[in-house]
């Protein structure tokens, strides 16, 4: 699981005045009662648009995230690690399939989503625009990026949209293995030789910035955010997720004798909150808009795969088939 902090943008559908007030009240009452929304229910346009954006970004993050990890399968140390990493990458691509289907129930076809990804119109988790220099980078992704994603996704699984909840339930059961596998790989490096320890430390140093910005910039509290929280589209704020991640994983990094490249990082005992150096949000914005070390490579590789498979899809196409969005 790779889904990162979600960035909700204001849309032209933002205007709730245009919605039928009676239906809107029924919809909100249903969510307030703790019931899930299913695809055929009436829903405000803003709900539909933001959910498509969120689930689609999550799906893209799964397939793009599989690219840096997948490139380490042949170079993973030992047969068992190769098998495990292969199983993990296969899981991640499977997660993308589940998520694309969930997004499709809202009315956007999978083909449109894949085209938007390749053309840079849809986003994916920003961390995958950074390179993996050594095996330790792959271990850091498997452990800490997955850990961050789990924090986010556990929050999202309490959301209000039925198909997304069903997909996340399936995804979360598979994630338990990813996290343990990632931790195990990192523990082996950190408790190994001096060279291995150095490799682990350097990877943590490289990835700390991207990990901290993974959860997204602090949410600016707007009417828009409040609406999405009330509709249980957004469950926890980006800062809440970041705090939870620090709480769970900083001690686990420290116990391995590794350091974190942030002099300010400490837990304020009085507030119970972590104090840290604010991530470089300018870099975050620059990279997410296309100017990162690996953006071009990730999309080019995805596009090449898409183009190379075109003849197979063409050959198998059933001329009588018609497209129907998945049911649930």
């Amino acid at each position: 699981m790779y889904g990162g902090g979600n960035i909700f943008e204001a849309t032209v559908f933002d205007d709730l005045q245009a919605e039928d007030p009676v239906k809107l009240a029924e919809f909100e009452a249903r969510i307030a009662r703790g019931e899930k929304i299913e695809p055929d229910d009436w829903m405000p346009n803003l709900y539909r648009v933001q959910l498509i954006r969120m689930i689609e970004q999550h799906a893209h993050s799964e397939i793009i995230g599989a690219l840096p990890e997948g490139s380490w399968i042949t170079r993973a140390p030992g047969f068992r690690r190769k098998l495990a990493l292969m199983a993990k990458v296969q899981d991640e691509v499977g997660h993308a399939q589940l998520l694309y289907s969930a997004a499709e129930t809202l009315g956007k076809s999978r083909e449109q989503m894949l085209t938007d990804l390749i053309n840079g119109k849809s986003k994916y988790s920003n961390v995958f625009n950074y390179p993996t220099y050594t095996w330790a980078d792959a271990c850091t992704i498997s452990w800490l990026i997955d850990a961050g994603a789990i924090v986010n996704q556990v929050a999202n699984s309490k959301g209000s949209y039925g198909p997304y909840c069903r997909a996340l339930e399936r995804i979360c059961t598979e994630e338990a293995f990813h996290l343990k596998y990632g931790h195990d790989s990192m523990v082996y490096l950190a408790t190994g030789t001096e060279v291995q320890r150095k490799m682990a430390q350097e990877a943590i140093n490289r990835w700390w910035g991207p990990i901290m910005s993974f959860f997204g910039p602090p949410d600016n509290v707007s009417v828009h955010t409040e609406t999405l929280m009330r509709w249980k589209v957004k469950i926890a704020s980006n800062d809440e997720c970041r705090q939870q991640f620090l709480d769970m994983y900083v001690p686990k990094i420290w116990e391995l004798g590794l350091t974190i490249p942030d002099d300010k990082l400490r837990k304020d005992e009085a507030t119970g909150k972590w104090v840290y150096t604010e991530p470089d949000w300018e870099e975050f914005t620059r990279v997410i808009n296309g100017d990162g070390p690996c953006n071009a490579e990730r999309l080019a590789v995805r596009r090449r795969a898409e183009e190379r498979g075109a003849w197979v899809r063409q050959a198998l196409l059933n001329p009588k088939a018609r497209y129907v969005r998945p049911l649930a």
Binding site: S101, E104, S109, R110, E111, Q112, L114, T115, I118, N119, R303, E306, R313, L316, L317, N318, A321, R322, Y323, V324, R325, P326
Partner: peptide, 13 residues
């Protein structure tokens, strides 16, 4: 930019 594909590029559901 890649040209948009038909909704059936990747088949029926």
């Amino acid at each position: 930019p890649m040209a948009p594909k038909s909704v059936l590029d990747q088949f029926a559901t």
